[in-house]
């Protein structure tokens, strides 16, 4: 399988670029990247799921809104997500079902906390498939 995402150097924070053959896959890989920053997802199962729906002004903002919703769910419900099924993705609306597991402090060593997805260096672009880029404040 080709590369799902890569980490781009940034002094204080972490920027990622995620790839996909279509924009849904690129978004899903961006969310996968987010949780990969926090933990080695090998150690996370996908026995529970949440429906996550967000709206925004445009597709770039939708990416930020969706990732921030996942960060919120992680903090409030303690869910680490590892698999993402995007059922609907328009310019202004995203519907997804996200699968993961509740944090288990014994098995799960969280590497880093992510405060938020930012709008800085934000990109959703098409060339040879899709590439999305987002900077996380950590």
């Amino acid at each position: 399988m080709s590369k799902r995402f890569e980490v781009i150097e940034h002094t204080a924070d972490v920027c990622i670029a995620a790839y996909g053959s279509d924009v849904k896959e690129a978004f899903a890989n961006a969310a996968y990247a987010l949780f990969s920053l926090m933990i080695d997802l090998k150690h996370v199962s996908d026995n529970l799921d949440r429906e996550v729906e967000v709206t925004a002004e445009n597709q770039q903002d939708l990416l930020v809104a969706w990732l921030n919703e996942l960060i919120y769910l992680f903090e409030v419900e303690g869910i680490l997500f590892k698999r993402f099924r995007i059922d609907e993705l328009t310019e202004t609306k995203l519907k997804s079902r996200c699968y993961g597991e509740k944090v288990d402090p014994v098995r799960h060593k969280i590497r880093v906390g992510v405060k938020a997805a930012t709008y800085h260096m934000l990109k959703v672009e098409k060339n040879n498939g899709f590439r999305v880029q987002v900077l996380f404040d950590i």
Binding site: E57, D61, N68, I71, Y72, K115, A116, Y119, H120
Partner: peptide, 25 residues
């Protein structure tokens, strides 16, 4: 973190409403 996240969304719309031009979103 959540306060900042929430208000950046409303500020994004405000930038357009008040016709503010910014070099970085």
């Amino acid at each position: 973190h959540q306060v900042c996240t929430d208000h950046l969304v409303t500020m994004g719309a405000a930038v357009q409403r008040y016709g503010i031009h910014l070099p970085d979103r």
